[in-house]
């Protein structure tokens, strides 16, 4: 049997979901027997592979780079998973949305507190511009499965991946399905 190609990606989130993934501890060895991590903050690959089986997406879509990356990932990935509350709902990353645009956030971060040459970052091609509205993953690309939680506890991730590895559609219920 071919080894499963698992990718992870870190968009607008705090990396807590990735930390929770590492909390799988010794079960990671079980996972490593059947799957390779082919892309993501935990490995050194720079380019998203041409074809991946599963991609766990942490974080909400918050800037133009995220949008482009997600379109590429969607094309190259069989099963796309919204991984954690930011990807599923926008969560903390989207707390700025009621302000209406990115401008108030940038001003608060870069202009208000600055006392020496206040300026907004502007490096086209280097610093991706923020979207005016942070998007939950499913508002940017079609999503196959949702794994909520802030962060999803390791047990929940394990239950989810075990079903996926068994070739089943993961179906979280009860304590394994909770936001926050």
């Amino acid at each position: 049997m071919d080894r499963l190609k698992i990718a992870t990606v870190w968009l607008g989130g705090c990396s807590g979901c990735h930390m929770s993934l590492l909390d799988l501890d010794e079960w990671l060895f079980e996972l490593a027997k059947v799957a390779d991590v082919v892309y993501g903050p935990l490995v050194d690959t720079k380019e998203y592979p041409a074809a991946a089986d599963v991609c766990l997406v942490e974080g909400a879509v918050a800037n133009t780079e995220h949008v482009e990356l997600m379109h590429q990932i969607r094309q190259r990935t069989r099963v796309l998973v919204a991984f954690g509350d930011c990807a599923v709902t926008g969560n903390v990353t989207a707390l700025r949305n009621p302000l209406g645009s990115a401008a108030p956030v940038l001003e608060r971060a870069y202009l208000d507190p600055a006392n020496l040459r206040p300026a907004l970052p502007h490096e086209p091609g280097v610093v991706p511009p923020l979207l005016d509205r942070v998007l939950p993953l499913q508002e940017a690309v079609p999503v196959d499965f949702y794994l909520p939680g802030c962060p999803p506890p390791a047990d929940r991730i394990k239950a989810f991946l075990q079903e996926l590895l068994a070739g089943k559609a993961p179906h979280l219920t009860g304590a394994n399905l909770r936001f926050g």
């Binding site: 509350d85 999503v143 794994l147 909520p148 979280l172 304590a175 399905l177 909770r178 926050g180």
Partner: peptide
């Protein structure tokens, strides 16, 4: 704007519990 992760009622909320009970994953 229901953000369970930063809510005072996280874990004791009837709305959050309804989402769990009705299988709302997004």
């Amino acid at each position: 704007n229901h953000v369970c992760a930063v809510c005072v009622s996280n874990g004791h909320c009837e709305l959050q519990a309804l989402a769990t009970n009705l299988g709302m994953d997004h």
